[in-house]
């Protein structure tokens, strides 16, 4: 008896045997046949990104504006704490969830709200009742204004999506130019021991499912704040 795997692989091999499909024809070159394998880096086609760090930070800031990400450059940790304390006061936050990193700990040093740490696990309802989640990240992507998070860098899968306000604390050294660089960085960092979860977060949660009108905070965070510290 053959199992599903054998059946499907046999069907595929049968379908492909001596049955070549026409190659897609290039619309941007005049040469008909391109036999040599192409460079698979999409950089030359995707939105352009400057080489210098300040250009990349500017681009990230512009993209954030369009995405309704609240992006703050913070000279010192003290500046970041000040921004947080305004948020806590404005929202009358009672409980904040986070995971332990040097930066999240420093950020929350003088905070008076209750803290839930996900470092060793959490109760779902407990996390759900938090007013905000504070996490680190893998890197920031200038090209699209995305932030790459992962299970280890963002305190698991849910911390960055369940509370209604997500705050990311990052360093300027974490800025990468584009998506290609972000994926390369993840590969270098984890080799073949990838975490089970990696996510590009690009703005607060949103939907357009009702009359194509934009509404923020569909199921995930209604607000996303990025605090960028100098190294």
């Amino acid at each position: 008896m053959s199992d599903g795997k054998t059946i499907i692989l046999n069907r595929i091999r049968e379908a492909l045997r001596e049955n070549p499909a026409p190659r897609p024809h290039a619309s941007h070159t005049s040469s008909d046949q391109e036999e040599t394998p192409r460079d698979h880096t999409p950089r030359e086609w995707l939105p352009k990104v400057g080489e210098r760090l300040d250009e990349q930070i500017d681009l990230f800031a512009r993209q954030s504006e369009g995405l309704k990400t609240e992006f703050h450059r913070c000279g010192t940790m003290e500046d970041a704490r000040a921004i947080l304390s305004v948020l806590v006061a404005e929202g009358a936050w009672k409980k904040i969830a986070t995971h332990t990193t040097p930066d999240t700990s420093a950020l929350l040093e003088k905070n008076r709200a209750e803290i839930l740490k996900t470092d060793t696990g959490y109760q779902i309802d407990d996390l759900e009742s938090c007013d905000a989640g504070i996490t680190g990240c893998e890197c920031l992507v200038a090209q699209t204004g995305a932030i790459l998070v992962s299970a280890p860098s963002a305190g698991g899968r849910a911390l960055s999506v369940l509370p209604p306000h997500h705050i990311i604390i990052a360093r300027t050294s974490q800025m990468v130019p584009d998506l290609t660089a972000a994926l390369e960085l993840a590969k270098e960092r984890y080799g073949n021991k990838f975490p089970s979860f990696l996510s590009f977060i690009t703005g607060p949660s949103r939907t357009g499912d009702i009359e194509r009108i934009l509404v923020l905070g569909a199921h995930g965070p209604k607000r996303l704040t990025v605090l960028l510290l100098e190294d």
Binding site: G121, R157, S196, I201
Partner: peptide, 18 residues
């Protein structure tokens, strides 16, 4: 880019909390 583009490589791994 859409808001979330997430890559999942397996269930919870050793050392992961959720």
């Amino acid at each position: 880019m859409t808001c979330y583009n997430t890559m999942y490589g397996g269930p919870r791994q050793p050392g992961e909390i959720d």
